[in-house]
Each structure stands twice: as C-alpha cells, then as structure tokens.
Design a protein around this nucleic acid. Structure first.
Lengths: 136, 136
DNA sequence: ATCATTGCAAACACTTTGCATACGC
DNA sequence: GCGTATGCAAAGTGTTTGCAATGAT
C-alpha cells in the first residue's frame, strides 16, 4: 500500500485513508467499477464512508488525470485506472466489462479532419465468451 | 415529409405527428441533438409537446433500431439517425459533435477475444478545427 | 491553530412511470 | 368505438452543492 501512497503524492493528491482505499480498489486489475460498486464494497470495511466522498475523490482523480471515466452505457459511469490506450467490451448479458488490447494506428493519431484529438474511447458491446458458452 | 412517413411505417412505427417531427429533426444531417435540444427547438412550433413524448419516442426509435444513442459524455445522451459505422468527435470547447468517417477494418470485426460484437462506438474528444483557429 | 477532507442533508438534473385525456382509424 | 399516443404530475436515480464537524500537521 506504501507505493500507492507515493503514487498519489507524486500525482499531487494528498493520500487520505479514503482516497487510498478507493484508489486501491479501483486499481485491482480489469475491474471498472461504478460508484455504487465502490461504495457497496468499501462501506463494509469503512462504515462511515459516504458516497459524497467517493464522488469527490473520483472527480479529483479525474482532474489529476489518474483515472478515466467510461461511458459505455448511458446510465452507468465506470472508472478505470489503466490510462494506456485500450478498448472496452461490455457484455449485454452479464454486464461484465473487459479490457481489449487493440492495435489500431489510426486511434493514436493526434488529429482527424483537422481536429486535435486528446481523448479516445473505443467501446464494443455484445455477448461475452462466457455467456456465449452458456447459451450454446 | 412523405418519404419519412413511409420510412417509419416500414420500420414498424406508427407515424404520428410528434414522431414524424422528432425523426425529421434528428435526420437533418450531422446533428446529434440531446433531448433538451429537440424539446427546445420543436416546442416552439408544437407548444403542447412534452418531454415525456420525446423520451417515449426516442426509446421506441432505439428499440426499433432506427436511432443510436451516443454517450460521449457522462452527463449527456445524444441521438443519431446515421446507422452506418462511423466515429464521433466532440469538441471540449464548443461542444459540437462531428461525424468522422473511419476506415478501420478491425472495427467491423464480428468478434474480439472470443466475444461476439454487435455494437461499436469510437468516440474522440479534443479541440475542433474551428476552435483551434480562434485560439491561434 | 490552521487548513483540507469528510460526510450529512438538501438541491439538482435527467429519465421513467402511472394514469387520465385526446386522437386517429 | 376502440386501441394507441400524448402529456401532466409524481416518483425514481444519479450526481453535485452547502456547510458543519472532523482530522491531520
């Protein structure tokens, strides 16, 4: 946990207990949780935790560029600590969101049609391989 | 307007006056309006129009596959009648959303990592060419 | 002692639901 | 006349804001 603390400090974020726990939770692999997921999970161990703090914290993380907001779905925002360029696949059946490694030179382009690009999101939707198995 | 009527009927949608007007408004080029934009514009000419009707109508259009929901931004849903595969660029300065014609073979692939893809969205963000001009 | 963070409660914004009215065939 | 579409009001959701209490140095 010590290295996470240093990471936050490096990014200009005072590493309070709540912030550390929220970042640690986000940073556990390909997870992309929603605010509710974070709250429900962490509130078990931090009973005083409030959703306001989670919103504050995620907005701070976003502002400082250490998380990305995923808007695959109109009604659910997910958060990702993996800042490298990659795509996301969401399964319409089970709701799982997968990281997809893409190799699209085009995506890394700095401009398109004269517009300057500074953020890219490739979202795919369908049925994931696990759900495909079950319906087979 | 007659051909729009026939189009809706073909897609299994009863072409009421409100539905026609909403679809016609959506279908005016690269526009991608939000519910509010549709409402504000059409309410001028259809004073009794309610937002509920717009929500009902857009959900119906979505269900019948004649519009796509764009979720470039967490807090704003936009609607698009262009069902062909293309990307969207949103300008952080002026808020304008542009259609981008892309040629990425990968994007048309039917599967990735064993998952079956049935919907694709490529969202780009940055500063559009018009806003770049002004700050120059 | 001071300044920043937390978290409650209230406010806000967006979308859906329930239902009575109005419309079109 | 009947079945559907409309639109008001209310409910439901997700997020932000105001502010007092708390915590860290």
């Amino acid at each position: 946990m010590e290295y996470l603390k240093e990471y936050l400090i490096n990014e200009g974020i005072h590493p309070s207990y709540q912030r550390l726990r929220i970042f640690e939770y986000l940073d556990r692999g390909e997870f992309h949780p929603t605010v509710d997921m974070i709250y429900n999970e962490l509130a078990k161990e931090i009973p005083t935790l409030s959703k306001t703090t989670i919103y504050n914290t995620l907005n701070l993380f976003k502002k400082n560029g250490i998380v990305t907001r995923l808007t695959i779905e109109a009604n659910e925002v997910r958060y990702d600590t993996n800042m490298q360029l990659h795509a996301h696949f969401k399964c319409d059946d089970c709701g799982m969101v997968y990281d997809i490694q893409v190799e699209i030179p085009y995506l890394t382009s700095l401009t398109v049609d004269g517009h300057r690009i500074c953020e890219r999101h490739l979202y795919l939707k369908g049925t994931c391989k696990n759900c495909l198995k079950e319906t087979r």
